[in-house]
Write a protein that binds this DNA or RNA. Structure first.
Lengths: 224, 224, 224, 224
DNA sequence: TATGAATGAGTGTTCATTCAT
DNA sequence: AATGAATGAACACTCATTCAT
């Protein structure tokens, strides 16, 4: 079946040659995947509609079943891809070549920005947890990229400790969780939050303030 | 229609008099509400089934429509009640009579414990945010209890500042969000988290460690 | 779930009282069952359409699923009922009170007539065998009524042997099969037969002639 | 479009020359036909899947449409071929050169064996009758081979009558039907039969016993 | 107050068939 | 001759909701 994650390979080259357009399998798969991501993010697994995905993807509903098996497997592919995407982006931060404090700040800021620019990521993760990670369980790639990520933060912490700028007893996993939590919670609960706290969570100043607050929280936690 | 929130009133008295259990309207409403809470928490709004709620509540499906109008209004009642519940529990903490640091610690611990013992609360909030807080919007009670809550934390911060144990520039709303975020994120994402980080998020030691970590994060943030 | 076979019990009494008509569950079940029998007989399990069954039964499609679970279970109920019906009719022949030869003739004639008047029976049995009797397997009633039937023919043979009119070495099961086969084959294959042998298999004289032929075949086989 | 029946012609010769197997039109047609026979026999016309036929035939689905027009025409070809096959085999029995009794026994045995070794034949015939012989109707070949077959049995009967070993009033068509019926019914209904009569219809001894019983039935019917 | 019966509009999925190469 | 891509109509089945008592 394939994970549907490695879509980019040769279709690009071919496309530049003859432009197969509507009969390009890889392109169709990619369109379906993109549409599915939006639909699942917006409505959850149960609330998503296969018809709407097909419409948005400008594909035939039948193609979804041809390429992805069924709604649930499509969801699984989407979730897996979402995780691979964020982990890939994190790897590109190139934190190794920055001083530890700068690197940590960069990571906090990146995490915040990523959630902000990819709101589907958060809802997809929420959906997957509603389903007790039943789909992610089946993924093998996920463990590979996760280990690399934890290793990256672990290395960063080690360097900070060596440089005597970070505390020595910080668990990289707990730190990862905390960095994610501070941004994730604010953004995923921005709707109820705006009501409960009677302020617009998405106003530019509010966003800036929150990032500042998160940054301070992390720095006070990690730095000596 | 009623909010369904004031269930406790007199139904006890009436029940002891004559009415058989199966004809006790308040009891039926309460059973439906409890069943609905579980069902919505487990499956989300779209994934929840009215039939299952009726079954679990040992009530006739028709009763749901009679008492709550429709599925969505039932969801709204459930979400509203969930918020009222946590805010009510928080008020009982009686933080005013504790030294600021102790009060803050108590609040952090309480928040963590509450999420842990009421996992439906978290999923309900996630669901409500998936629906852009469309249901909570209509609630009036929610604003009242929220204000009281923010006021409580604000007062606590003020006392800490006056005692010179807390920093003076902490926004009570940001602090609230942060306290919630640290526990909420860990628990709502415990399924994907357990896979990504290859450890059991719900193991007793893991829970303890996380609470310790959260406590330290908050204390380092707030205390001088 | 129930077999749906014992439909007649109380609904009759109630019906004579108030005529609940369209809200009589038993009546609805019976209508669905009758419509399903026709549809399955005409088109087989795969070719049958749930929509058509609902239409013919003047029932809502949803009711089919409510009462019978799904298409396959409905088919199972239909097949089971078909067998119970023929076995019940056979019991009413009262062969015990006839001289053996007369009783045997009556059984041959009955079998022929039953197939002729209940053409759905044959196609249902064919369908069930196409599916390797997967549905009948689950039925318990079937074994009971079948044993009674074999016993009846066995008793008849015994009486004939005692009277010295029947051969003594006839296996009642083989005889049953043979009686059935002679009529069944002719009728189930009447369409291809009419083409292959270029005669109208269903013309009254053709039917009479075939019954005569079958009768003679059996009598020559069984009688001394 | 062609009947698809005359496959053997020259394809062998062509294949030995140059053409690779995967480009041998006749071979592809033959593979499709064989696969279709199995699929239709197993699942009936409605239950058969064009995809499965293509898979089994290791052919492209498109080829089925290219060579046979559509699913129904493919079915028609299969059914026609099945009849031609059995009639062809019967002609090879060479009954004319055997004494009438021996010839009749040989025919009974052959019929039984053919059904036993070609179980698809029976299910195909059942399917075709479910569809009221709609497909066979269109075939011309069928009538030719059928006439020859009836003539063969007629001739056999005549010889038996002339030899004074057979009764003189047997209709060859009725005899044909009866010979077929005795084996056909037992085998087509072997699944329900095994349940109803609580014995394994396909056990070697059971098969032998049935053949013996059938033989006796026919002989007692036909012989003086 | 309570309930079993009934319904219409979906909802995921399948299928035979055609298109483009 | 052969193939992978694509499609629309249909299909089994589900669901929230209303009716009748």
């Amino acid at each position: 079946m394939g994970t549907g994650l490695g879509l980019k390979k040769k279709s690009g080259a071919v496309a530049t040659k003859v432009k197969p357009k509507s009969r390009d399998a890889e392109a169709t798969k990619a369109r379906i995947l993109a549409a599915a991501k939006r639909e699942f993010a917006k409505n959850g697994l149960a609330g998503a509609r296969v018809d709407r995905i097909a419409d948005k993807a400008k594909a035939n509903k039948r193609m979804i079943y041809h390429y992805f098996g069924n709604k649930e497997k499509l969801f699984q592919t989407v979730v897996e891809a979402a995780y691979v995407d964020i982990r890939t982006a994190e790897q590109k931060l190139d934190l190794e070549h920055l001083p530890p404090r700068d690197a940590l700040e960069k990571l906090v800021r990146f995490t915040w920005d990523y959630y902000l620019k990819n709101p589907e990521f958060i809802t997809l993760v929420n959906s997957e947890n509603l389903h007790r990670a039943r789909h992610l369980e089946k993924s093998e790639v996920i463990k590979v990229v996760s280990r690399r990520f934890v290793g990256m933060v672990g290395g960063l912490l080690d360097r900070g400790v060596a440089d005597r700028v970070f505390r020595s007893d910080i668990d990289p996993v707990q730190l990862n969780i905390t960095i994610a939590a501070l941004g994730y919670y604010y953004l995923t609960n921005r709707f109820t939050g705006s009501i409960l706290f009677e302020r617009d969570f998405m106003a530019p100043e509010a966003l800036e303030e929150r990032l500042r607050f998160n940054m301070e929280t992390i720095m006070r936690l990690v730095c000596k």
